[in-house]
């Protein structure tokens, strides 16, 4: 896939300690991913159209958050434009699908590819200056992209959006129904999550981790900082594009509002709330942001304010996110039971 452009892997993994602790946990990640996919395949039976929709939306959001987790949690770069990349993917799929009749699979690949390319173009000048300027450049980019979505009516339909986006067909089976499309998304999410799982275990992934932990040391060990930083950002952005390509057929209608700057902030919030750097963190974070407002429906018009309070309290209680808290609790439990030395916390 996209890894073809990667520079040659570094000669030795610079974060051997972190990696050994990591690989043990990653096997748990692999098992959880597969078991979760099986569970999600059957879960929505009898949940109704809307329940299934929310479940699918959670998975689609998780894909975008996974990409941002690679950018932020693994490589330590702050991007404020993930929703804009999702928008690029969503509009690419919607425009090519409705106006040119391109099949969904090509749209999906093009969405990811386009987001990857835009990520490279955006990251190159920003990262040339200094890593944290990426946050400012992506902030400006997210707003500019949203302006284009809203103003270029001839292409994007402006605020009226694009309707009648078709759902994909798999081996001649149409996925028009909510359940069929949900299962389709489960498979795509699993494939993308496994690709990322493999990437993070690979020498490239270890180089990404080295960037976050100690860039100067990574550089002195022969990691080309600029190339890897750029690559991490572009792959993370491509996942945003993939998520967008699934979002269009899920909602079957898109307009600019879900891709505004505040949506990018929200995706960042999900990474941190779930547990930045944890591979399963994106699923937990996206669950908080997608499902919690649904569960808070009983509060009526106040659900957003309650959501804000819950997230604020959650962050104050566990700044490392829910999985960070879970790991701390797990380690404390193991230490108390005397089952060997606790894993060093990252």
């Amino acid at each position: 896939m996209t890894e073809v452009v990667a520079p040659s892997p570094p000669p030795s993994p610079p974060v051997a300690r972190a990696a050994s602790g990591l690989s043990r946990r990653l096997d748990g990640v692999l098992l959880t991913l597969i078991a979760g996919a099986v569970l999600l395949w059957f879960l929505p039976v009898g949940m109704g159209r809307y329940g299934t929709y929310v479940l699918t939306l959670w998975l689609v959001t998780s894909i975008a958050v996974m990409g941002l987790n690679l950018t932020l949690g693994i490589a330590g770069l702050k991007s404020l434009a993930q929703a804009a990349f999702m928008g690029i993917g969503a509009y690419t799929t919607a425009i090519l699908g409705t106006k040119f009749g391109v099949d969904w699979y090509s749209c999906f690949l093009l969405s990811g590819l386009l987001s990857f390319a835009v990520g490279l173009l955006l990251g190159f000048p920003a990262l040339r200056v200094k890593a944290h300027y990426l946050a400012f450049v992506t902030l400006a980019f997210a707003t500019l992209v949203w302006l284009v979505f809203r103003n270029e009516q001839w292409l994007t339909g402006g605020t009226f959006g694009i309707a009648n986006i078709a759902r994909p067909t798999l081996f001649g089976i149409r996925t028009d129904g909510a359940l069929a499309f949900h299962r389709f998304v489960v498979v795509v999410t699993l494939v993308l999550a496994l690709a990322l799982w493999w990437l993070i275990r690979s020498p490239w992934g270890r180089a990404f981790l080295a960037l976050r932990e100690n860039p100067i040391r990574a550089a002195s060990l022969g990691v080309d900082i600029r190339a890897y930083t750029l690559l991490a950002f572009a792959i993370g952005s491509a996942y945003g594009g993939f998520a967008g390509a699934l979002y269009s057929p899920l909602v079957e209608f898109i307009d600019p509002s879900p891709f505004a700057l505040s949506a990018s902030f929200m995706l960042l919030l999900m990474v941190v709330a779930g547990g930045s750097g944890y591979q399963l963190g994106p699923f937990v974070g996206a669950l908080v942001a997608v499902a919690l407002p649904e569960w808070l429906r009983f509060t009526g018009g106040l659900y957003l304010i309650v959501f804000g309070v819950v997230v604020l309290l959650l962050l104050i209680a566990c700044p490392q996110g829910i999985l960070g808290l879970a790991e701390r609790g797990w380690n404390a439990l193991r230490a108390r039971l005397g089952a060997g030395a606790a894993e060093p916390s990252r």
Binding site: L72, L269, S276, G308, V311, L312, P319, Q320
Partner: peptide, 10 residues
Amino acid sequence: LPLAIATMAL
């Protein structure tokens, strides 16, 4: 970062 995110919730 967690603090910056907390201000978003605020």
